[in-house]
Design a protein around this nucleic acid. Structure first.
Length: 560
DNA sequence: CAGACTAGCCAC
DNA sequence: AAACGTGGCTAGTCTG
């Protein structure tokens, strides 16, 4: 059963059961305590409803504090975005108000701008404006049900409604998980983080100063150049190197490594530590960690490929060194589940290449391919990644030749996606997420074709080809991860909560981290494996391709 | 002087 | 090894 929900500003709301057609919709009722009403439904036994609401990130944060977790939802804005994208209208306004306006042939309002997160203590003065974009006088719940019915019709008309419905469901489930993870937070030991920083950088300096180790390195760098140089300034570094007779194209680490001069190791060390200090130093710790938790603000579907982004806090780029600060609570444990080699496995599954699929039936796909590359697993890996990323230079060319001979259907799959991209067409993931159309500028540039403009046109076309080549793989890998996360979310609800409620606390592209009472770690691991198996069946039916999980049960994420 | 842009490195 | 896809984030630098 589906229930449409509209929240009011006082914690209440209106609900309406949604029937198979408009005339069978149930009665409308008003509740003073929306969280309580939702909880009643979720606890009632039997199948929980699918809540239909305008946007999970507007409605759910206020529910999640009080009610038990919601099982399922349909997020109008996220589904609208997927449907628009399918029609080549990527990026058009997707709010309930925008969808309603399109449905009624009215002027489409732009989406409200989302405020950037600014740390662990959101600014109370900026608290929640009214984000509805419906015209005055239009009933919100009526509009919600109309747009929902329209979305259901649009999905039903697609060539493969079942797949797209799965995409809509897991995108929405992801939105639930994102709100829950932001609420629960990643267990974060500020004292351990501080110790890691002190170990690398020395004691914390007073505000605005370089930490002792960085200050010392900066001084030695200037001495080595024989002049004052700010190592944070690429321009100054290039000049200083030029004065020594080294004309560098950039100051990237791998360029510096080619230079034979005593200043280079100092600079490389400085860059590494400076990055640690500026991106994840004491300033970050104060802004983002409160009460022993790091609470990232996830942006579901924030990346064209369907991967998530985060707003502030850099949650998807936590450096390996800092992961030592992620430590389970006493008597609890972290379980990190990493799906290994997802992208080549996805390629094997979606291309229908039997030979590659057979190799993807093993735990180490690259090792299985190594025999064709003189026994060199690393070369097999580079070759396969090159095929999916569109790399042509470097060592890739002969490896690609070998792959094209051994796995023609797999290579044809990505080559075809690249060609369609170069021609300005759309490509789609397995479940139907669709890449953005080329920009008007792209069309103008590539439509040209006289003399000097040919180079630019060909380059832009090849760039888009690399993008679409990768899109069909990366976007399908992202939805594999979403289906998996949704299955894990369901699985968590079935675990014993007698010693505390196990939680999903972190998600990063192809990796999930759970925080669970230690006594139920074994059953959680078992649940994860079952969820991965369920995901394979839901996505690909019967396929020899396997998606093995690398599971680490650890106290500290740094040990995973 | 605020905002836009660039260079560079982090993650997958 | 370093022209290979998706991003976020910071300090330095440019611009109006």
């Amino acid at each position: 059963m589906r229930i449409g929900v509209v929240a009011d500003k006082e914690g209440g709301g209106r609900l309406r059961e949604i029937g198979p057609d408009r005339s069978s919709d149930g009665g409308l009722w008003r509740v003073g305590d929306l969280a309580g009403a939702v909880a009643d439904y979720e606890n009632h036994g039997g199948t929980a409803p699918r809540w239909v609401w305008a946007a999970t990130d507007e409605v759910y944060p206020r529910l999640v504090e009080r009610s038990p977790r919601v099982s399922r939802c349909h997020d109008i804005a996220l589904v609208e975005s997927l449907l628009l994208g399918y029609d080549g209208r990527f990026g058009e306004a997707r709010s309930l108000g925008a969808a309603w306006a399109r449905l009624h042939g009215r002027d489409v309002p732009p989406d409200p701008v989302t405020r950037a997160a600014d740390g662990a203590d959101p600014h109370p003065a900026l608290f929640e404006p009214d984000r509805s974009t419906l015209p005055a006088g239009v009933d919100r719940l009526t509009a919600l049900l109309e747009v929902h019915a329209d979305q259901q019709r649009r999905i039903a008309r697609l060539p493969d409604p079942g797949r797209f419905a799965l995409l809509a469901a897991v995108e929405s489930a992801g939105a639930l998980a994102a709100v829950e993870m932001s609420h629960d937070g990643v267990p974060w030991r500020a004292d351990v983080h501080d110790a890691v920083l002190a170990e690398h950088l020395g004691p914390r300096p007073s505000h605005g100063m370089r930490p002792p180790v960085l200050a010392g390195l900066a001084e030695r760098i200037s001495d080595a150049f024989g002049r004052p140089v700010n190592p944070d300034s690429p321009a100054q570094l290039l000049k200083a190197f030029a004065a020594l007779g080294h004309r560098l194209t950039s100051t990237r680490s791998w360029v510096l490594k080619e230079v034979d001069h005593p200043v280079v190791p100092l600079l490389l060390r400085y860059k590494e530590l400076s990055r640690l200090h500026s991106a994840h130093g004491w300033g970050w710790l104060e802004s983002w960690v409160r009460g022993g938790r790091f609470r990232p603000d996830y942006v579901v579907g924030g990346v064209v490929s369907g991967r998530w982004a985060t707003r502030g806090g850099g949650a998807l780029q936590i450096p390996k060194a800092i992961r030592r600060a992620v430590v389970a609570d006493p008597d609890w444990t972290l379980i990190a589940a990493d799906a290994g080699q997802v992208e080549p496995r996805i390629l094997a599954a979606v291309s229908g290449d039997d030979a590659l699929a057979a190799a993807a039936g093993s735990d180490d796909l690259y090792a299985r391919l190594a025999g064709s590359f003189g026994g060199d697993r690393q070369r097999a890996k580079i070759g396969l990644l090159a095929a999916m990323y569109g790399q042509t230079g470097g060592d890739a060319a002969p490896l690609l030749h070998t792959l094209r001979r051994l796995y023609p259907r797999a290579l044809h799959h990505v080559d075809a996606a690249a060609r369609e991209g170069e021609e300005g067409r759309l490509v789609r993931s397995w479940l139907g997420r669709t890449c953005p159309p080329p920009s008007g500028m792209w069309r103008r540039v590539t439509a040209g074709g006289d003399g000097a403009e040919d180079d630019a046109a060909a380059r832009r076309a090849r760039e888009r080809g690399r993008f679409t080549r990768n899109f069909v793989i990366q976007a399908t890998a992202a939805e594999w991860a979403l289906v998996f996360m949704a299955a894990v979310r369901r699985g968590l609800a079935g675990l014993d909560t007698g010693r505390g409620v196990p939680r999903l606390v972190f998600f990063q592209h192809d990796e999930l981290v759970l925080h669970v009472p230690r006594q139920i770690a074994d059953s959680a691991v078992e649940m994860l494996r079952a969820a991965a198996e369920e995901t394979r069946a839901l996505m690909f039916g019967s396929t020899p391709v396997r998606f093995p999980l690398d599971i680490a049960v650890v106290e500290c994420y740094g040990d995973a």
